[in-house]
Simulated scan of single mutants.
Amino acid sequence: MSTQEHLQQRIELLEKRLVGLEDIEQIKRLQRMYGYYIDNRLWTEMAELFSDAEAVMEIGQRGRYLGKHNIEQFLLDVLGQGRSGLLRDEFINHMQLQGVVTLGDDGKQAQGRWRALIQGNPPAGSRSLFWAEGVYENTYVKEAGTWKIARLWWVPTFYTSHPCDSLSFASSPASASLPPQQPSAEPDSELGRTFVPFHYQHPITGHAVTRVTSKT
């Protein structure tokens, strides 16, 4: 093999590795966005992350829902109990940890394993906190150059709740002894606390995403 052929082969190998690393980062980004959308009960935005072809969602022992339409209905009607968005003083934290992504040989499919740690409170008025933990084993596909979720499978390890005497959504006020140069962002009157806007657009639709506040 000539020096030129060797260099060409090495360039092709490095380019393949670079594409693989970019694919893995896109998949991780996709899964993280899913977590932030579920934090805010954005069911439509979550469903749009799924493959247009053969999407599957399986949560615990609730069965498998096939296709984006059925997945969206499941999210809204079953998980969401008919409502989108957060109630005032309601919160969900869906933290996805220990992500391991493995690309398929064809570069068009991948597997991802994540550990989800979930905390939240029931709708305002209840004096308890909810915790859950479980493992995702997901499948992703690359459609027209964009990674999407083909199968989302979450198996819970545990669910629990415990009493909570107090839950505050108010931060400490500005210091009187060392006043800030500018005031903090105003809390959202409907949510009951400050909402941090998404700086990114939806990875599939390209639309800006905003929170939804439930009125019920």
Rank of each mutant, 00 (worst) to 15 (best):
residue 43 W to K: 06
residue 57 M to T: 11
residue 51 S to R: 04
residue 19 V to G: 01
residue 67 G to K: 08
residue 15 E to M: 09
residue 12 E to G: 05
residue 68 K to Q: 15
residue 37 Y to H: 08
residue 11 I to W: 09
residue 26 Q to Y: 09
residue 60 G to T: 09
residue 59 I to D: 10
residue 13 L to K: 07
residue 56 V to Y: 04
residue 25 E to F: 01
residue 56 V to G: 05
residue 24 I to K: 08
residue 27 I to L: 10
residue 73 Q to N: 13
residue 35 G to V: 06
residue 63 G to T: 00
residue 73 Q to I: 07
residue 48 E to W: 09
residue 66 L to N: 07
residue 35 G to I: 00
residue 23 D to Q: 10
residue 52 D to F: 14
residue 43 W to C: 05
residue 74 F to Y: 15
residue 38 I to H: 09
residue 50 F to G: 01
residue 71 I to L: 07
residue 20 G to R: 05
residue 17 R to S: 05
residue 56 V to T: 01
residue 18 L to I: 09
residue 60 G to L: 01
residue 29 R to K: 12
residue 58 E to F: 07
residue 59 I to E: 10
residue 12 E to F: 10
residue 21 L to S: 08
residue 33 M to S: 02
residue 15 E to H: 00
residue 46 M to W: 02
residue 45 E to G: 04
residue 31 Q to D: 06
residue 69 H to W: 10
residue 20 G to P: 04
residue 30 L to P: 08
residue 56 V to E: 10
residue 21 L to D: 06
residue 68 K to N: 08
residue 51 S to N: 06
residue 50 F to W: 03
residue 76 L to T: 15
residue 69 H to G: 10
residue 35 G to Y: 04
residue 53 A to L: 12
residue 24 I to D: 00
residue 65 Y to C: 08
residue 65 Y to W: 11
residue 36 Y to A: 06
residue 30 L to D: 02
residue 52 D to I: 07
residue 17 R to V: 07
residue 67 G to N: 07
residue 72 E to T: 00
residue 29 R to F: 12
residue 10 R to L: 15
residue 27 I to C: 04
residue 27 I to D: 03
residue 18 L to C: 03
residue 32 R to S: 11
residue 48 E to T: 09
residue 70 N to H: 13
residue 59 I to G: 02
residue 64 R to E: 14
residue 14 L to Y: 01
residue 22 E to L: 14
